[in-house]
């Protein structure tokens, strides 16, 4: 790691001020950023740790919406979202491993938008709202390709608001080494629509599989997916763990299984 300073503000306002320094970078749970720093792939002058901001750690239900503070760990979401939104709790419970879930946060995951992060698929499928210290952003506008988001410099994800679906499930087909999703599919069924968010697969990062959404809106069954043409393999990531064709195929399988498992 390069040398840098670290600050631990206890409020969002303090964090925003601290992030005003040149080359300052926010630090969520650090489970992705710290390994990146070890490889000297980032050279911040200062890290602003968000873990001491108590106001950013909560899972709150407000009617049909589940609001999760940006600093909430995956472990907490796995436990506290379970009764309100089991699909999301199930997603959180399978990120990384127990130690990683005790540190990694939803805000960090959403802000980083790793092409194989789990949360973005749920945020897209559910049409979540990404709340920052300055504004609210619709998920469809927020995710802009691999590691690209609508966030401005110094902007912090303070909350993610999920409309709670009637039924949902997250199906993760793991890359065998990292255990990140090779393909992850979040299926969310609402009264008037179905969302299908796909992570891990596409060269463009997380995306909604709209053909499946349309087919499932009329007939929320595994059979409805079976007849669909898989997404174009040439748009999919091809690497040592899987070809584009394989990933495209898995999207169909995982979607089908997600529909069958949705609760």
């Amino acid at each position: 790691m390069y040398a840098f300073e670290i600050e631990r503000p206890t409020s969002v306002a303090e964090a925003v001020t601290a992030l005003g320094t040149e080359e300052a970078q926010p630090l969520g749970g650090g489970q992705t950023l710290i390994p990146t720093l070890k490889q000297r792939l980032a050279m911040p002058s200062k890290l602003v740790a968000l873990t001491a901001i108590a106001d950013m750690k909560y899972v709150r239900r407000d009617g049909d919406t589940l609001a999760i503070g940006g600093g909430t760990t995956h472990g907490t979401v796995a436990k506290e979202a379970a009764t309100h939104f089991p699909g999301l709790a199930g997603l959180a419970a399978r990120i990384g491993d127990p130690a990683v879930r005790n540190r990694g946060t939803i805000g960090g995951s959403i802000a980083n938008n790793d092409p194989s992060a789990c949360y973005p698929s749920a945020a897209l499928a559910c049409g979540a709202t990404i709340v920052t210290n300055t504004r609210e952003i619709a998920a469809d506008d927020y995710f802009q390709g691999m590691f690209m988001t609508a966030l401005e410099e110094g902007e912090i994800v303070t909350e993610v608001r999920f409309p709670i679906p009637e039924k949902s499930a997250y199906m993760k087909f793991e890359q065998i080494a990292s255990r990140f999703p090779l393909v992850g599919v979040f299926v969310a069924k609402y009264a008037d629509r179905v969302g299908v968010g796909v992570t891990g697969a596409s060269n463009d990062g997380v995306f909604r599989w709209s053909e499946a959404e349309e087919a499932l809106a009329g007939d929320f069954s595994a059979d409805a997916v079976a007849g669909l043409t898989a997404p174009d393999a040439s748009d999919m990531i091809s690497d040592l763990h899987g070809t584009g064709a394989y990933r495209a195929h898995l999207i169909g399988v995982m979607t089908k299984r997600g529909v069958a498992a949705a609760s």
Partner: peptide, 11 residues
């Protein structure tokens, strides 16, 4: 080397 860490070398 493509499998240069535990992210790509499956233990």
């Amino acid at each position: 080397l493509l499998s240069a860490s535990y992210m790509d070398y499956a233990m």
